[in-house]
């Protein structure tokens, strides 16, 4: 066989290589380079063919370009979403790269239609591409059905869109992971453009006592796969954010939106601990039920509430530090 990286050789290498992708790729490269220099052959060297192009599987069934796109996400500021019983909150750690940036401007959590928000971690322009497509999808849905798009349908459509960017070698995958938060109206909505109330007798096609609407949270990855979440985290500090989210027992569905906002702020502050040397801004948005603070719309958390949440978050961090110090001191004393 003319191609030097036969299935067997590569599989062997891959098995031996470290579990970590980066290490594995590095190992592959070194190996390949060594071999190509030892055994020069005509034409282009094809050792690294599996990770240089999108839409190409490696012999063990992976798309390296998608995995590299995930790397881009892992370097971005932490983004989280919390699904509460009466709404959803999105929070973002926005790293301040320069003093010259206008404080408080450069919003990165975007509104889709009126009842949904999107936050992304990873390449900023890719996040904006995602947002603009999501807005188009929502508008398209409205043209078709004269009603707002359900959050689940938006997640599904956007999942398909992202997935399409893993299929062709003429494009690259999205370097973002996006969290979509939405509140689907629990009330019967008027059809867009409706001018009257319709017939006052008969069912009029409506099902009685049907429950619909509520809070929804989805996260879409560069591969296009997505899941629904109670609490989602992505970006640099996702590990610590995830473990904090798990402590909230979100599956019980008891956490209120007001509490959720405070928790979200606290979690972002905790996630920021690892990159403490850099300044950051906290951006938070929420969407509540129709009788909640945002009346079913996706909006920025008002400054007052955000600042209070930030105050509590800082305090919680300090308390933790003191506790640890006390513990450490206590431990030392005991040792003494």
């Amino acid at each position: 066989m003319a191609v030097s990286c036969t299935r067997e050789v590569l599989l062997e290498e891959l098995r031996e290589a470290a579990v970590d992708v980066e290490a594995r790729v590095a190992a592959l490269q070194v190996e390949a380079w060594t071999r190509s220099s030892l055994q020069p052959r005509g034409g282009i060297s094809r050792e690294l063919c599996y990770d240089l192009s999108n839409s190409v599987f490696s012999p063990d069934g992976r798309n390296f370009q998608v995995e590299y796109a995930v790397k881009a996400v892992e370097n971005g500021g932490t983004a989280i979403g919390i699904r509460c019983k009466d709404g959803v909150v999105l929070a973002l750690e926005k790293l301040v790269s320069s003093k010259l940036l206008k404080p408080g401007a450069n919003k990165r959590i975007a509104t889709i239609d009126r009842n949904m928000g999107v936050v992304s971690a990873g390449l900023l322009p890719d996040g904006r591409h995602f947002t603009s497509r999501a807005r188009d999808e929502a508008a398209q849905w409205r043209r078709m059905y004269k009603a707002p798009i359900p959050t689940s349908s938006l997640a599904d459509r956007m999942g398909s869109y992202i997935q399409a960017y893993t299929l062709y070698n003429s494009v690259r995958p999205f370097g973002v992971t996006c969290i979509i938060a939405g509140w689907d109206s629990e009330a019967e909505l008027a059809v867009d453009g409706q001018v009257g109330s319709g017939p006052t007798v008969g069912a009029g096609g409506k099902v009685d006592k049907m429950k619909h609407g509520g809070p929804f949270l989805y996260m879409i990855e560069p591969s296009g796969s997505y899941w629904g979440y109670y609490g989602a985290a992505t970006g640099k500090g996702r590990q610590s954010a995830k473990s904090e989210l798990e402590k909230l027992n979100l599956t019980e569905g008891t956490l209120s939106l007001e509490e959720g906002v405070k928790e979200a702020a606290r979690i972002i502050y905790i996630a920021h601990e690892d990159s403490k040397d850099k300044d950051f801004e906290l951006e938070m948005t929420w969407v509540s039920s129709l009788d909640g603070p945002t009346k079913g719309r996706h909006e920025e958390v008002p400054k007052k509430i955000r600042e209070e949440a930030e105050r509590l978050a800082k305090k919680a961090l300090e308390d933790d530090d003191e506790e640890e110090e006390a513990k450490a001191e206590g431990g030392e004393r005991m040792e003494e």
Binding site: A105, K107, A110, T111, R135, A139, D192
Partner: peptide, 21 residues
């Protein structure tokens, strides 16, 4: 009316993105 609704939704996008602290 639907045309105006879609315009209002788009306007809402840009008013948020140009908001400062």
């Amino acid at each position: 009316d639907r045309l105006l609704l879609s315009l209002a939704i788009r306007e809402n996008y840009s008013s948020y993105s140009s908001a400062s602290d």
